[in-house]
Each structure stands twice: as structure tokens, then as C-alpha cells.
Design a binder for these strands. Structure first.
Lengths: 235, 235
DNA sequence: TCTCATTTGTACGTATGTATA
DNA sequence: TTATACATACGTACAAATGAG
């Protein structure tokens, strides 16, 4: 049995204190200097612990301001950051995106509920195709609150990146609130667009991403080609 | 426009070199010392870049050995430190289990590799059916190292619980190392056991659980009926 | 089996840059 | 403008795991 690193013990202590309500949503944690003093360690050791918390989506650091507890820590464990485009690149493939539709329209009941908008509010919708090595791997649909991001469609058209477009819209960082996964079989339309047979297996993910304040910024669906993609979750 | 941090530029360079096939799956990257020398920076700056690559699932470091490019680039990493909140069986439903087979046999190549056992080592296998409201929702197969857990099959038969059986085998706690998710269609056998049509969508999860020392204790497959089950990952 | 050089992991120290309040 | 606080980047030292001999 190996000894627990100091930074991990500190991360664990802080996580528990957040879970116990010692610090609440939006609260500022003590400064790195104060935490260093409290735990009797170097500032960098505290920083390693804080990096862990941020990585888990529990906290968010603002340079010059402090480290703040993210919204909804009671649902706790563990948040995650998902950047689809980035991950495909990291996987050593050549990612590409093809825009299918860009439009603004009234959101349906499901979309406005997911984005915490009033019924009938306008949403901007980005539908497209993800390709790796010139082979389609996924269809996706991203829905954004139109009022909050008035230029999102043109930003998406230019940047082809949800992360970059949201950043231009003032959202420097976002985290995935939830993901739902189901297996489906491809409809005729989906099969055509993905270049697979009708009835082939499809992995559908439905997700909500929120800004650091916990406000939903994107409601997304992705349909992965089942036998070309494996989702990997590591602890 | 803020200047790009050096560590980010290095991470980007290395990512591109991996994507370009300069390093391949399983290859060892140059040592931290060599990379420091190459980029003309301190070792810690290289470490910050390597941390980013590891965080994206691109590489994996082994102390004393080196940093290696992760295998299977078709896998799709959706983030580290994610755990199932597993509300997967809706609240109020009473999950039930039915044993299909209990046996000890030589493990195949995949099983022994996943459990870090020598080739041909004996494994104990537990196959069964999960039901909710008398309706099958999943098939599962759990594979254990037979030598380490000599009584696991009788324990499972009595307890019907992997957690309880492992606890009796001396594993007080275990954690999920990884989960892989893919969409499949049901084979004839699976369709029969799950009471669905052949070709119906199936969500397959493949997972590895390890004890606190990191030694694998269970290699599990689960096949969920696609339209009866939604996996939910919450942060 | 044991030693030993190599390599990554942890922890501390110092300095400076940059954004915030 | 100024003090505060996080971000980056350099450095040193030792611990722990690996792998070759």
C-alpha cells in the first residue's frame, strides 16, 4: 500500500468540506496562500489539489479574483469536461465537421425545459456531421438560447467549434451537467447521412452543458455510429 | 489576445506529432529530460504539457518506465474521473437477478489481459440476467481471477451480489477503472434471453474494476436493452 | 536475488506575469 | 493606482517504480 500524496489528502479534505456545505455554490474558497498556511504546505502543493477539484468540475478559478465553488455541488461526485472535436483530435484522427443546418426557431417543450427557458423562447440550432478520416462517425444537434447568444450561428459557421463559439459569446468555460446514453437503430435518414445500413446500431447521447454559474448554455444530441466509435469513461 | 503559454504550445506540438503518426499506439515518448532539452524548457513545463495529454486520454505515464501513447485510437475518451450516478433502474423498481451460468475455466486472451493475469490462467465466470418488473433489462458477464477468489462462485450463488462476494473475498472496496460503451444489435441468443427481436439495439458496456492497490478484480460486460434502459451520467 | 541507473511522482523554493477588485 | 490572487516558469531535492545486468 502506497502512501497517499499530500495533495490528494488536501483535495479530499476540501471536497468533503464542499460536500458538507462548509462552502456553498458560488462561494470563494480561501486563497492559495491561506490554504498553504492552513495545511502547512507549499503553495504549489495546494495548487495541485485545487487543480484536481477544478478537473472534477467542483471549483473554478478566476485569475486575480479567487477560486469559486461551482454550482450544484450537492449532486456531487464529479463533473467532467467534454470537448468532442478536441478529443477526436487527441485520438490521432483527422476530425472534420460538415454543417447540415443552421437556424433560429421557437424551441419545443423539451428544448426550452433543458435550457431553462420560458415556453416558446427562441433557440438557435446547429445540426451537422462529424467525420474522422473522411468517414462519418456521428450526427449531432446543438441547441442554444438564441437571446443570450445572438451571433452564435455566424460564429459557428466561421469557427465550426461549439467551444470557440461559446467563448466568443462570453462563456470562457463550460461543464457537462448530465449525459444520457441509449442504444438505437439507425433511421433511413440517419443511415443515409452516416453512410450505414438502415437498422445498424447507433449510440445516442443527450447532454446538457452549463456555464460556471450553472446556467445551461447548450442542449446537445449526438448519434454515434455504433461500430466505429467506443465511448470510454475512465475514473 | 493573451500569449499562449509555453506548456500549451508543447502539448499542441506533441498532439500533432502523435496525430501525424510520428509516435504510434504503445510507443514510448521521449523522456521528460529529453523533451525539456528539445524544447529548451524546464522539466516541469514539459510535465504540465504531458499532464494535458494524459488528461485527454492520449498518453499514459508509468513511473520508472516512461510515457506511452495509449492504445486503440478508435476509442473515444469522454473524460476522466466520471462515475455513473447509476439511477439506471428507475426509482421504486425492484431489480432482480437470475443466474444463468457459474463456472471456472481457462481465461481467453482478452480476459487474462484485462485482469492482468498470465496467459491461460483460470477465471471464474458469472453470467446472468437483470430484471426489473419481471422484464429483462440486461445480460451480464462478470469474470474474476479464480486463484485469488477460490470461493467466489458459491459466494455469488448465495449473495447474488458482486460487491458482497468480493467483500467476502477480502476486497472491502473497489473502484471502476474504465468503462467502454458501444451500440450493438442483439444476436439471436441475446434476443432470446432478453425477450427482444433479433437485431434490436443493445447498449454494451465493458468495465474493469480494481481494488485499492489497483489490481483488477473484475472484468465485466453488460448488454442493456436499448429501448428499456438509459444510462445517466451526472456531474 | 540483488544492485543500480533511469524515469516518473511528489514537494518545496523563487520569481515574475496578468487579471481582478 | 495599488494591493491581491491566480498563472506561468524557472530551479532543487528526494521518493518510488521500473528494467537491465
Amino acid at each position: 500500500m502506497t502512501r497517499t500524496p499530500v495533495w490528494r489528502a488536501i483535495a479530499s479534505t476540501l471536497t468533503n468540506e464542499i460536500a458538507d456545505g462548509h462552502y456553498r455554490s458560488g462561494d470563494k474558497l480561501p486563497t492559495e496562500a491561506e490554504l498553504s498556511s492552513r495545511f502547512g504546505v507549499n503553495r504549489h502543493t495546494v495548487r495541485r489539489a485545487l487543480a484536481e477539484l477544478a478537473d472534477q468540475g467542483l471549483t473554478h478559478a478566476r485569475r486575480g479574483a479567487g477560486v469559486f465553488v461551482m454550482a450544484d455541488p450537492t449532486d456531487y461526485p464529479i463533473g467532467k469536461r467534454v470537448r468532442f472535436h478536441q478529443n477526436l483530435l487527441a485520438a490521432g484522427r483527422m476530425p472534420d465537421r460538415r454543417i447540415l443546418t443552421l437556424q433560429t426557431r421557437p424551441g419545443d417543450a423539451e428544448e426550452t425545459a433543458a435550457l431553462a427557458l420560458p415556453v416558446g423562447a427562441q433557440v438557435s440550432v446547429y445540426e451537422g456531421l462529424s467525420l474522422a478520416d473522411n468517414s462519418p462517425v456521428a450526427l449531432f444537434r446543438s441547441v442554444f438560447p438564441a437571446q443570450r447568444f445572438p451571433t452564435i450561428l455566424t460564429d459557428l459557421e466561421q469557427l465550426l467549434s461549439v467551444t470557440a463559439a461559446l467563448e466568443r459569446g462570453g462563456v470562457a468555460d463550460y461543464t457537462r451537467v448530465s449525459t444520457r446514453l441509449t442504444a438505437k437503430t439507425a433511421s433511413a435518414t440517419q443511415a443515409l447521412q452516416l453512410g450505414i445500413a438502415e437498422g445498424a446500431p447507433i449510440l445516442r447521447t443527450v447532454s446538457v452543458n452549463a456555464d460556471p454559474d450553472g446556467k445551461p448554455v447548450e442542449y446537445g444530441h449526438t448519434w454515434f455510429v455504433g461500430d466505429r466509435i467506443t465511448l470510454v469513461i475512465e475514473s
